[in-house]
Amino acid sequence: MKAKLGFFDFTGCEGCQLEVLNFETELVELLNHVDIVNFREAKTEREDNYEIAFVEGSITRESEIPRLKKIRQQAKIVVALGACACLGGVNCLKNFRPMEENLRIVYGDAARYYDTIPARPISSIVPVDYYVPGCPIDKKEFLKVTKALLLGKRPEIPNYPVCVECKLAGNVCTFDKGETCLGPVTRAGCNAICISNGRHCWGCRGPVDDPNTNSEKEILQKHGLTVEDILNQFRIFNGYLEVSK
C-alpha cells in the first residue's frame, strides 16, 4: 500500500512547495512509494483521503483556522513545512503593527473586504507531529523526514545550534569578522549555508529546544548591537516567539 500524501498551503510565498517540486529525479523515485492526492501547486485533481499532510504557510486570517483544523482531522500525521508554518516566519513582522494599518498598507481602499489576524505558526492552532524548518526548507531534510515517516521511524532533525555545522564547514565565525549572528541559538540542519556564503545566520530555522537567548543577547550587545537591533534580528523569522517581544 502506498502512503497518501497531501500538500496544503496557507500564508506563505509557496517557496517551500516549489522546493519540493524542484526535486525532479528524487520526486519521481518517491512516487514509487507514495500517492500525492492533494497538491494545488502541482495538480488539479484532489482527493481528501491523505494520511500525511505537509502544511506550508502561517495562519494570518480567521478563515484559515477551520481549514487547518479539517486537515488535522483527516491526517494521521501533520508535518509543518518551512519557517512560516513552523514559526510564523516573516509574516510575523506585521504583528508589530496594528492590523488595520497592515490592511490599509496592503489593500488600500479595498481594505474593508479583507480580514487579517496576527500571524502565527500552525502549532498554535492544531497539534503538529513533525517539523521541516527553514526558509525555504532544505530538500535533503524534507526527504530525510519523509523517508523516516514511510519507514515508520521517528524523523530526527538536529537539536544543536548552527555553530556546530558552521565550525565543521571550516568557516571563520562572523563575530570574528566584526559582525553578528543568530547561529548560537538557531537549530542546525542547513549546513550553515548563509555563513558559508559570506552572510550571517538570521534564524530562519527557529531556535533549538532550549536556546540560551539571554546569553546570546548579552553576546550581541557586547558586539555592538542595541536592544532594538537585537529585537529586529530575532523578529525577522521568530517574531511569534517570546524572545522577540
Partner: peptide, 11 residues
C-alpha cells in the same frame, strides 16, 4: 550559566 550549548569548543 552563559553556555550556549553550541558545541564550538568540542568541534
Amino acid at each position: 550559566e552563559k553556555c550556549l550549548s553550541c558545541g564550538s569548543c568540542i568541534v
